[in-house]
Amino acid sequence: MSPTVQASAGPARSSGAVTLPRTIASEWIKFRTLWSSVLVATVSVVGMIGVGWVGSFFTNADWAHMRPRELARFDPVVTSLNGYTVAELAVGTLGVLLVTGEYSTGMIRATMAAVPARLPVLWAKLIVFTGLTAVLMVPTAFVSFLGGQALLGTHSTSLSAPGVLRVVIATGVYLTIVGVLGVAFGALVRNTAGGIAALFGVLLVLPAIVGVLPSTWQDTIGPYLPANAGQAALSVTPDPAALAPWTGMAVFAAYAVVATGVAAVLLKRRDV
């Protein structure tokens, strides 16, 4: 290599200030250039559709051998959308990783040095990831549902049946909000293992903990737990113990907004 060098190679000056759209562009490049994020996003789509379709296929195939209790609980919508739990784990993990991956590698220092206002980075990550999960998960819910119904044969239902369209859309929305929570928890905890543990502690373990409390407490607190509130919209016939479908989803979204707000305040105040 030549020892003589010039820093002024190529045009660099024609650009101007850091803006939110530019930060979004940067975050989009970051997202799509990581093999891991593309892989996990693929898992969420394929996993959800796969579980829904396989479950629907075997339910139909084994119909004659199903126990009465199983038949009583059978819901064609639930059967075809059961894979949302796979997507929930994948999307939540990906949301956490989007932030903590930068902390674990040190990339965050380069990121925050480029955008020292810091908050645009959080907004850009949320916009990119929320947009992406919504665009992936709502259609995935439809594909999972429609394919599942086809595989359920005579036991299927249709989108025009009461409440069905709402459940399919709500599944996509629920997963999108899980993604937002993942990003917020990642920004709060700044550590991959801790962030994932905190996120799924709140989503999966918290309801189980409340489940061991006296039933009057359960009835009071239970419906307002994040996951319970969000999942209120995921059944065709609303559970009387749960919140009304979209009310529940709004409560779930409110948790995501609060978590994001706290993450934003801490991001601004803490050293990188």
Binding site: A9, R22, S26, T111
Partner: peptide
């Protein structure tokens, strides 16, 4: 990715 934050192009 870093360049994008400031609108710096691929040439650079």
């Amino acid at each position: 990715a870093l360049a994008a934050t400031t609108g710096i192009g691929r040439d650079r």
